[in-house]
Amino acid sequence: MTGIRKFIKQYGWSYLFILPSLLTFTIFTLAPVLWSLVISFQDYSLVRGGKWVTPIYANYVEAFTLLNGIFLIAIRNTVIYTLFTVVAAIGLGLILASLIQPLSNRLRTFFRAAYYLPAVTSALIIGLTWAYIFNAQWGFATYLTRMFGLPPIRWLSDPDIAFWSVVLSAVLTLPATAIVLFSAAMGAIPQEYYEAADLDGASPIQKWWNITVPLVKSTTLYLVVLYTIASFEVFERIYIMVPSGVGNSTQTIVTQIYNNGFKDFDFGIASAQAFVLFAMIALVAAFQFRVLRSDVEY
């Protein structure tokens, strides 16, 4: 008890300052997450409340078998979307950051601000912009196909093309966060490494591959995890660009959670699918930390 009193006397005021944040987190984040975990084992209704299902894991089984296994299709689409968008974001971010790094401070600051613009733009605006670009009648993509004499393409209404149109829109949206963070990480690399490489006769590509890329590995890990989580949770872009869903071709995990929870009001299934998504993200993130973890210091 003496140790506890001493701790409270010494640090009590500090915890009072963070108490509002802790209460906000507990009420609006932690409590709803724990409650949704409980609901995932119940047949829950807003009117009559929850009733435990039998067996206890029935909602998780039904989540995968509902509507002829549409959730498995959603998982497949989400994984494909994640692979393409994460690789593109990291690759483009690294290349563009490398291109602006040799510029003067003013130009580098200008390009960082310009490239970061998509990050502060509403997802609604970005989604609507790409929906206009892929409009089958007067979109810019349709204009390009007509200019080259190609037949009309139903970018967002053809089940075989709609999903890839969404993926393409995500790939072509500049990875703002990656560019800014990679640029900052490159600026922290000591110039002595590059000077030593110059003395050894290394080419710019060799310096980039053997010095820059390895020394920004910690930033790469952070961005890979960040973009993976964001890609697994993709919803706004698909919901805005393809609101009808085009059958099952554009279904993702989060669109399935939305449909089950807010259209069919099957909160038990939706909560079970949400925790499947949580488990997938946790496993992938753990694997990424294990593979990309870096102890490099400079």
Rank of each mutant, 00 (worst) to 15 (best):
M1D: 12
I4F: 15
K9E: 14
Y11L: 02
L16V: 12
I18F: 10
L34W: 08
S36D: 09
L37S: 09
I39H: 08
S40L: 07
F41P: 01
Y44E: 01
V47K: 13
W52G: 09
Y57G: 01
F64Q: 07
T78Q: 04
T85Q: 08
V86P: 03
G93W: 03
S98L: 11
S104Y: 08
L107P: 00
F110I: 14
F110R: 10
F111A: 05
P118T: 04
V120L: 01
A123N: 12
W130P: 00
W130V: 02
F134M: 05
A136H: 12
W138C: 00
F140I: 15
T142A: 14
L144C: 10
T145F: 13
R146I: 06
M147P: 00
F148S: 11
W155H: 00
W155S: 01
D158N: 14
F163I: 03
V166T: 02
L172K: 06
A178Q: 07
S183Y: 09
A188R: 12
E192P: 00
E192H: 11
Y193I: 07
Y193H: 04
D200N: 10
P204L: 08
P204Y: 06
P204V: 09
W208A: 11
W209Y: 14
I211W: 08
S218Y: 03
F235R: 08
E236F: 07
I238S: 02
N259L: 12
F262R: 09
F265T: 11
D266L: 11
L283F: 14
